[in-house]
């Protein structure tokens, strides 16, 4: 049985008489100790999807219109989408950990780290204050914070952005959640720091068997760090499968366009493949293949008025059917 089984998750926002179809019928599973990368551009619904699972969206305007998300816990499976406010609060922090792009959203600026890091340990595991602090210091040392015994008594603002993100990971090491949802955890950081943070995340999931849902716009992070990838566009899953397969031989034309748009030294002197236009306006959700709404995309009439289904194309590799033909390189360049 998978650790997390999400079926048909659909989230909408009702704003000023309009409905934004942010997440449409998203399904996936996540196993223990697995890293699933979720990639997509802004507006693809990837962050809304994660916040829906954590039930962090303000309701209203947000509304989880359909779906279920079963998380295996010691006391049996829980449907995250059905829990009461009190129950979900107990699940967050204990069963599910969270790391955001800005660590300050999760750290209280007025409390010392010693308090924040030990709070959960003492509440969830009933440790004494001294034992909890000892464990916290050890965790800080493991994520590479030197002089941890002294610095544990500082406030969050005394740390740099990268250091704060390490503190968040230390917190996850201490709480050992079954599932970690990390939303753009390294986007604001320098490349050298990014690498260290991702290394530590990887270690966490290897050692503690934590499953990680890693939301990112960075295909590079996905290629190297994730077991599987889910590509989202217009609130829908376009392709999901092993990350190596998807990064080397993507099947969906959108994934192909995304990969081809990446600048790299080997493309020097050539124009990049830039899919024209912008992602669709989700106030009027695309009825058929959402890619057909991009200018320059041709063909694909089969899926103009009907939502294309996900089809299995390989071991664990699913692709949303599409007959869209991307514009040729020359056309994108000279259009």
């Amino acid at each position: 049985m998978p650790l997390l089984d999400v079926q048909g998750l659909t989230t909408r926002f009702a704003m000023r008489g309009e409905t934004v179809h942010a997440v449409e019928d998203v399904s996936f599973v996540l196993e223990e100790g697995e890293v699933l990368g979720v990639v997509g551009e802004s507006g693809s619904g990837k962050s809304v999807m994660a916040s829906s699972l954590l039930r962090l969206l303000p309701m209203p305007p947000a509304q989880i219109a359909a779906g279920q998300a079963l998380l295996q816990t010691e006391s049996g499976p829980l449907d995250l989408l059905q829990l009461s406010e009190r129950e979900i609060r107990r699940v967050r922090g204990r069963e599910i950990g969270m790391i955001f792009q800005d660590p300050m959203t999760s750290l209280n600026p007025y409390l010392r780290l010693s308090t924040q890091l030990t709070e959960g340990l003492r509440r969830h595991y009933g440790l004494s204050k001294r034992a909890a602090i000892e464990q916290a210091i050890e965790a800080l040392e493991r994520v590479g914070i030197s002089d941890a015994a002294k610095r544990i008594h500082s406030h969050p603002h005394e740390f740099s952005g990268g250091m704060r993100q390490r503190v968040m990971i230390a917190m996850m090491l201490l709480l050992q959640p079954r599932l970690l949802i990390a939303d753009e955890p390294t986007t604001a950081l320098d490349v050298t720091v990014q690498r260290q943070i991702l290394d530590q995340l990887g270690a966490l999931c290897r050692d503690a068997r934590t499953a990680v849902l890693l939301i990112t716009h960075d295909l590079g992070v996905v290629a190297q760090r994730c077991h599987r990838v889910m590509v989202m566009y217009a609130g829908q899953v376009m392709e999901i499968g092993p990350s190596q397969v998807i990064c080397e031989a993507p099947r969906h034309p959108y994934t192909q366009a995304l990969l081809r748009a990446r600048p790299s030294a080997s493309l020097r002197g050539q124009p990049l493949y830039a899919l024209p236009g912008n992602p669709p306006d989700l106030r009027e959700p695309p009825v058929g293949d959402p890619l057909l709404l991009r200018p320059g995309v041709t063909g694909g009439d089969r899926w103009r008025t009907e939502r294309p289904p996900l089809e299995q194309v390989g071991a664990g590799h699913w692709v949303r059917a599409s007959e869209a033909v991307l514009p040729a390189w020359e056309e994108v360049r000279d259009a």
């Binding site: 024209p276 360049r333 259009a335």
Partner: peptide
């Protein structure tokens, strides 16, 4: 190299 003109984007009303 041909002159590259980016495709003109349409704007909502």
């Amino acid at each position: 190299m041909p002159e590259q003109v980016p495709p003109t984007e349409k704007l909502p009303p």
